[in-house]
Simulated assay, not measured.
Amino acid sequence: MHTIPATSAPGNNVINELATYDPNPLLDSLIEKLHLKNDAALARALEVAPPVVSKIRHHHMPVGASLLVRMQETSHLTVRELRALMGDHRAKFRTGDYYLKQKNG
């Protein structure tokens, strides 16, 4: 598993170092389940540009909510199963209190 350096700025494409995040098992499982040959074919199946899959695979971009939903619709796996494939076993997903402090403070 890879650990990504943390950043305090929200919206940055770097993932918190406290999370163990590896999108490769997720991408590999989707390729296998959908009987595809490579990342380019996966990008076509998910209707995203090939660099998006490449950036996710190389930890330059997280798997966003809209892409996760698209993966769910394409693979018929649950969102929980998809998140588990990349090492996210949390029962609930929370964005943290940073955004709450912004609104209230």
Score class of each variant (00 low, 15 high):
residue 101 K to M: 12
residue 19 A to G: 01
residue 21 Y to F: 14
residue 71 M to T: 03
residue 44 R to G: 12
residue 23 P to R: 05
residue 31 I to Q: 02
residue 8 S to K: 06
residue 4 I to C: 07
residue 10 P to T: 00
residue 31 I to W: 05
residue 34 L to G: 05
residue 85 L to T: 05
residue 75 S to D: 04
residue 93 F to G: 10
residue 91 A to D: 11
residue 23 P to Y: 07
residue 62 P to R: 12
residue 5 P to N: 13
residue 24 N to I: 12
residue 11 G to W: 07
residue 72 Q to K: 12
residue 89 H to E: 12
residue 38 N to W: 02
residue 41 A to H: 11
residue 76 H to Q: 13
residue 24 N to V: 13
residue 34 L to A: 07
residue 75 S to I: 01
residue 98 Y to T: 15
residue 104 N to Y: 10
residue 19 A to Y: 15
residue 30 L to I: 08
residue 35 H to W: 04
residue 29 S to L: 01
residue 12 N to V: 13
residue 75 S to G: 03
residue 20 T to V: 15
residue 82 L to F: 03
residue 39 D to R: 13
residue 104 N to F: 10
residue 29 S to W: 08
residue 73 E to L: 13
residue 74 T to N: 03
residue 73 E to D: 14
residue 64 G to V: 07
residue 14 V to S: 14
residue 94 R to V: 11
residue 40 A to F: 07
residue 48 V to A: 04
residue 57 R to N: 03
residue 18 L to V: 04
residue 27 L to W: 10
residue 59 H to G: 00
residue 31 I to F: 03
residue 18 L to G: 10
residue 78 T to K: 04
residue 1 M to W: 05
residue 56 I to Y: 09
residue 57 R to S: 07
residue 79 V to A: 04
residue 46 L to F: 03
residue 80 R to W: 02
residue 102 Q to I: 13
residue 14 V to N: 11
residue 2 H to P: 09
residue 48 V to H: 05
residue 40 A to T: 15
residue 95 T to A: 15
residue 54 S to Y: 12
residue 21 Y to W: 14
residue 53 V to T: 10
